[in-house]
């Protein structure tokens, strides 16, 4: 109940005194972040700064790693996601994730997008058809695949595959989409398409993106969170941070002196 008062309506995910370890090695140190609803938040920082780990912790995808330990809380809509009673299946439906390398499942384009719907129990074919079409349209892939929905997803190009996995993620109608360096394996044109897509999607979704492509973060994000060696160094509106970083490390990173 207390959380109801603390969390303002524009915060969708609150990371609270969050620490994480792989075995003995601490990779996240006392992270506190309020991610804002319907904004693009970019987590940036040099390799190994813990930005991917933080993102993976928000989807609890690190649960499978036995040496992974955490303390602190991540609160999504007033619920601690590390609470034992949380239904992980439902939570992951609401907070989806897209990975660095597009990994289509070994099935058709159509079935890839329908996968999430089916595991959440949807059986109505017409309903599934509609959502598949809508999701592919939202992911700006529909026009390219509408005549070949039943061909293997592996026949798509890398850029198309990444839009396919975004379509797959939005098909289950999440509230938040987490993206872990979604364009690092793509060429500049495909990258541009994805970026434009994210700017469209943010009207309906909250987007949290991890990237080590600084110009990309500056282009598309509303908020920037700069991490260094497991700590959150500086955060704020993207426009303000690039103009006047308050911390020396942030300034060094923005100027390419570290990274």
């Amino acid at each position: 109940m207390q959380n109801d008062v603390i969390i303002k309506n524009d915060v969708i995910i609150r990371v609270n005194n969050f620490n994480a370890w792989y075995g003995e090695k601490q990779v996240l140190k006392n992270i506190n972040i309020d991610f804002k609803r319907n904004k693009i938040s970019a987590i940036i920082g040099p390799s190994g700064c813990g930005k991917s780990t933080l993102l993976r912790s928000i989807n609890r995808i690190n649960d499978e790693i036995t040496s992974y330990k955490i303390s602190g809380e991540i609160i999504f809509e007033n619920e601690n996601i590390y609470d034992k009673e949380l239904d992980l299946t439902i939570y992951r439906k609401r907070v989806g994730m897209v990975f660095q390398k597009p990994v289509p499942f070994p099935m058709s384009v159509y079935e890839n997008v329908a996968f999430g719907l089916r595991i959440h129990g949807m059986k109505n074919k017409i309903k599934i058809d509609n959502i598949v079409e809508k999701s592919l349209k939202q992911a700006a892939l529909w026009d390219e695949v509408k005549d070949e929905l039943h061909k293997s997803a592996y026949e798509l190009s890398g850029g198309q595959q990444q839009r396919l996995v975004i379509a797959r993620a939005i098909a289950v109608d999440p509230e938040v989409i987490l993206l872990d360096e979604p364009t690092s394996a793509l060429d500049p044109i495909a990258t541009q398409r994805i970026e434009r897509l994210l700017e469209e999607l943010v009207e309906n979704y909250t987007i949290i993106i991890v990237t080590h492509n600084l110009p990309q973060a500056i282009r598309i994000s509303d908020y920037i969170y700069f991490m260094y060696q497991g700590e959150l160094i500086e955060s704020g509106l993207t426009s303000e941070i690039i103009k006047s970083p308050k911390n020396q490390l942030t300034e060094d990173y923005l100027n390419g002196r570290i990274g």
Binding site: I61, G96, Q100, A169
Partner: peptide, 12 residues
């Protein structure tokens, strides 16, 4: 990554 992609969609 394929396992993770499926888990991330809520698959058991």
């Amino acid at each position: 990554t394929m396992r993770e992609s499926a888990y991330a969609l809520g698959a058991k």
